[in-house]
Design a binder for these strands. Structure first.
Length: 708
DNA sequence: GAGCCTCGAGTTCC
DNA sequence: CTCGAGGCTC
């Protein structure tokens, strides 16, 4: 049993914080990375709480790698983080009616039992607010959490309690009920709030969503209480009992408990009826009184929702049909070139600042030269094939209400002397390296590779980025400054900073990024943060190396396939392009193809990279990769093959089900196959399974397995 | 060989 | 968030 915090000696507290940091990091990895938590949420929360209590009692012992400081999306200080029991996913967007019809067709293809019957959908306005999850236990509100990165959000319970639409207690609710919805502000309330703010000389908000977000995240709940926040429910997370058989009935039940449902919500039969709701709401958009950016359609039947399941970040049973975006007109003042870490040259539009949807926009990505020329990569016209020229008057919108984009150009306002834009033949870096655009690719690249200072500095930024080394106090700005001052030119240099400082070779105290003297404390903190990262999980290291085509996910695959750094590095060094055992082993990894394998082999063939990696790893202690995920699930680690025609479910459904149980679904039978599900008229695959002695089951037996 | 699904890379603004 | 491209399935 844990000793009361008050009874802990300093030494004991220090030791326990160290233990907790390790343990929590391990559980985080098991949960986030492997999807295979080994302790309950409550036990995990208890660890976090214990850590926080000790930190509160011994603030000077708080570790650089403290679990309370370390979180994915870096929620703001001041709010505890909350792990969502069910991830709060986002929705797939549909930009027009045809994309919605495709969504409907996809849903229909999933089921074999529909015939011509239409799918029933729930259509509801997509409120432009802030997502919030409310957890009720035994009818009492116990926790309110923002969406955050979908896995962890901020605990804003005290603030949520001040919102009139959020009851503190629900009569007759299930033992556990987590409702999800949107906190928003009406346009009228927003205007009045801004008038009040302006009067007081306080911050004026750009739009109702920002006002709602800002109000919900006040550290002082009494401020939130004065803000006119409202809340609509649109779904639920964890529940202790099924709410109903349909989305409609479930929402009705939640509404009957005393929560607000959006009055525009409709149940409709078939996709065309759903589209009619969109047309109706778009026409009445300005009259609703609150900001709405589209309409969400959800499959009404909850058993069908469950069968459809989820893609990695979105449910298959819902789609957000967006309204056409708000636009603004401005002048394209310049087209600059940015260099990415892979050498990709991206044109950026510098715009005369203009307000779009409540935010001032002055930059917008132009993607690549085809985009400027008015074509997509397939040569199809965009902007009806009209090109962009400096001096043009252009229409700007914010894609997904976030990323500014140049939509169209007004040729009637084009200055007579506006010249077509020409892609740069040389990199804008001091080396002026020639650029090239490989046949069939959209992107032009600098050929300077490691020599190009732009690429080097971007490479370093990638190295310290959040999913790589994530060194606190060493962000974009700091890296740029260190690079410019010649203090850091490759990753290994980061780990020698402290030694060089001690030896008097460099002096970090002298100046910060702005040339001001830096205080000793922050330098010390930086050294501590760097030291804390000398121990690094293999997958983070592989990702941080920055080989092309190797992102977070692929790095994880590689880490799991090779297990530890020595094995991985030896294999990469031994591999030759397109032949040999090491190459074959690499390609055999599920998810690794010839392009990625080629990029890795090339990365490790480059002498500069080999040496830089060697210098780096000398400073590190690389943690081996965790065992593969899904341990404990019914079919975990098994490979399943479906053959013949299935009669009680579609292929897609069968596959989704098998994967949910931890299996990998393969297309052909081999020695690695564990189970073959043979439907009617199974052919060669069945024969092969019998030859290899692989276990074969009928569709009925499979359903038995899948439901058990 | 086409079509789906995911991943990687680059980007904006607060 | 979006686009392009890689990987896999049919």
């Amino acid at each position: 049993m844990d000793k009361p915090v008050d009874d802990l000696s300093r030494d004991e507290a220090g030791r326990e914080l160290a233990r907790l940091a390790d343990e929590i990091a391990r559980h985080d990895a098991r949960y986030h990375r492997d999807d295979a938590p080994e302790i309950s949420d409550a036990a995990y929360d208890a660890l976090k709480r214990r850590n926080a209590e000790i930190e509160a009692a011994f603030p000077d012992l708080v570790r650089a790698d403290s679990p309370s400081a370390r979180v994915g999306a870096a929620p703001a200080e001041g709010f505890a983080t909350v792990r969502h029991r069910r991830p709060m996913l986002s929705l797939k967007n549909a930009m027009d009616a045809d994309e919605v019809r495709e969504f409907d067709a996809g849903v229909r293809r999933f089921f074999t039992d529909l015939g011509d019957a239409p799918i029933a959908y729930v259509a509801e306005p997509k409120i432009d607010g802030v997502s919030l999850a409310l957890r009720y236990e035994d009818g009492r509100l116990v926790e309110a959490a923002t969406r955050g990165d979908g896995r962890e959000g901020e605990n804003v319970t005290a603030n949520a309690r001040t919102i009139a639409d959020i009851p503190a207690a629900l009569e007759g609710a299930p033992a556990v009920l987590e409702v999800r919805g949107e906190v928003y502000m009406t346009q009228e309330d927003f205007a009045a709030l801004n008038a009040r703010q302006a009067e007081r000389g306080a911050k004026v908000f750009a739009n109702p969503r920002n006002a709602a977000a800002g109000s919900l995240r006040q550290l002082d709940p009494s401020v939130t209480a004065e803000r006119p926040l409202r809340f609509f429910v649109h779904g639920w997370g964890e529940v202790s009992e099924p709410l109903a058989e349909t989305q409609t009935a479930a929402l009705d039940r939640i509404g009957a408990l005393g929560l607000q449902l959006n009055p525009e919500t409709r149940r409709v039969e078939g996709v065309e009826a759903a589209l009619a709701v969109h047309a109706d709401l778009e026409a009445r958009r300005a009259l609703l009184g609150y900001d709405v950016d589209g309409v969400v359609y959800k499959v009404d039947d909850l058993s069908r929702q469950a069968r459809l399941g989820f893609r990695s970040t979105t449910p298959r049973w819902a789609v957000a049909h967006k309204f056409s975006a708000q636009t603004a007109t401005t002048v394209l003042e310049a087209i600059d070139i940015q260099v990415g870490r892979t050498g990709a040259l991206s044109p950026v539009a510098r715009l005369r600042p203009v307000t779009v949807g409540g935010v001032v926009v002055s930059n917008a990505t132009l993607h690549n030269e085809d985009y400027i020329a008015g074509r997509d990569s397939a040569g199809n016209p965009i902007r009806e094939g009209r090109d962009l020229r400096v001096g043009d008057t252009v229409t700007v919108y914010r894609a997904g209400d976030v990323i500014p984009k140049v939509m169209d150009v007004d040729l009637s306002k084009r200055p007579a002397d506006a010249a077509p834009w020409a892609a740069p033949a040389i990199c804008p870096c001091p080396l002026a390296t020639p650029t090239e655009r490989p046949e069939g690719e959209a992107v032009r690249r600098c050929t300077g590779e490691v020599a190009c200072p732009h690429q080097r500095v971007e490479h370093l930024k990638h190295f310290v980025s959040r999913n790589a080394f994530d060194i606190e106090g060493l962000g974009t700005k700091q890296i740029e400054a260190f690079f410019e001052q010649g203090l850091v030119s490759e990753p290994a240099d980061i780990f020698t900073l402290e030694a060089r400082q001690t030896a008097g070779e460099i002096d970090l105290h002298r100046r910060d990024t702005k040339g001001r003297p830096t205080n000793a404390k922050s330098v010390e903190n930086l050294f501590a943060a760097i030291a804390a990262r000398r121990r690094i999980p293999l997958e983070r290291l592989i990702f941080a190396l920055g080989a092309r085509h190797v992102g977070e996910t692929s790095a994880r695959l590689l880490a799991r396939a090779y297990g530890d750094w020595q094995t991985f590095e030896a294999a990469m060094r031994a591999a030759e392009p397109r032949e040999g055992e090491a190459w074959e082993t690499l390609l055999a990894i599920d998810g690794v193809g010839a392009v990625m394998a080629g990029a890795l082999v090339r990365f490790f063939a480059e002498p500069h990279n080999r040496e830089a990696v060697e210098r780096l790893v000398a400073h590190l202690e690389v943690e081996p990769a965790a065992a593969p995920a899904g341990a404990g699930a019914a079919l975990s680690g098994k490979t399943v093959v479906f053959t013949g025609s299935l009669e009680r479910m579609t292929r897609a459904e069968a596959k989704a089900r098998a994967e949910a149980l931890g299996a990998k679904v393969a297309g052909s039978v081999s020695g690695k196959t564990d189970l073959v599900v043979a439907g009617a008229e199974a052919g060669s695959k069945l024969k092969k399974a019998e030859q290899l002695g692989v276990r074969v089951v009928t569709e009925d037996e499979w359903i038995e397995i899948a439901s058990g």
